[in-house]
Amino acid sequence: MTGTTAERRGPEEITGENFVFLQRWVHQETGIVLDDGKRYLVDARLTPLVRDEGLQSLNELCNLLRATRAPHLNRKVLEAMTTNETLFFRDLAPFDALRETIIPELVERNRAIRALRFWSAAASSGQEAYSLAMMLVEMGLGDWNIRIHGTDLSEQMLERARAGQYLQIEVNRGLPARYLVKYFEREGLEWRVQERLRRMVRFERRDLREPMASLGTFDVVLCRNVLIYFDVETKKRILGQIRSRMEPRGYLLLGAAETTFGLDNRFERKPVGGAVFYQIREQCE
């Protein structure tokens, strides 16, 4: 049959009932809130998965999720819904602030131990962690004991991050050409981060809502564009976890649209250059 309404309208749209099912299920599994305005996100993120799994529509995917508890499919759906777009040196102001103010201050503070620890808490495919590594080497700190810890919920993303291998379109984004030729090697059609940088970075799967004690503590935590996806209670819990992993005078960086205000009053806002960081308030008892 040709020329039916369904064909002219393109792929079958997700029904209201199935969208509500996904909202509840994703919230239950990850704490992430998909409000009604996020329908486009569901379409954009899950349509490729529908195709890869040989399914006909998002509705069929929802039926499958309801009917079975196939762990591999569950994980793929959750990973697709929680992965962020990422680029090297995303937003210049925070990196300028780190380079010009925060890292020089931390270097002074840690001069005796010559160590700095960073946590890229939503590491995705690793661009933020490797951007930090490049910046630190450029600042002459390559011989310090640097640990950049990247965590993410998506094992699939972390595998890419560990490999440090990127498509041309990815290295075009945000990465100065000078750094590309200095810190990457061409491997076929892709570009791979040099081993000296890969050695500075470790990636590990973590759910930010779970206890983090085994991670140790950090001088700087970057957790950008993560809180926006969660409900208030989960945001509070995540900020509490992060706070417990920060050095007393360490710095937290959130996304430009995120704040600790109204969620965790132990944090204090610290504008640095064109960026906003947060530090743990000193106790005045």
Binding site: Q168, I169, V171, N172, P176, A177, R178, L180, V181, F184, E185, R186
Partner: peptide, 21 residues
């Protein structure tokens, strides 16, 4: 898109380099 060409362009005085597409 070869590293050598990028280096050549930067050494010649280009400030940045964008690969097509």
């Amino acid at each position: 898109t070869q590293t050598e060409q990028m280096v050549e362009a930067l050494e010649a005085g280009a400030d940045e380099y964008i690969m097509k597409p």
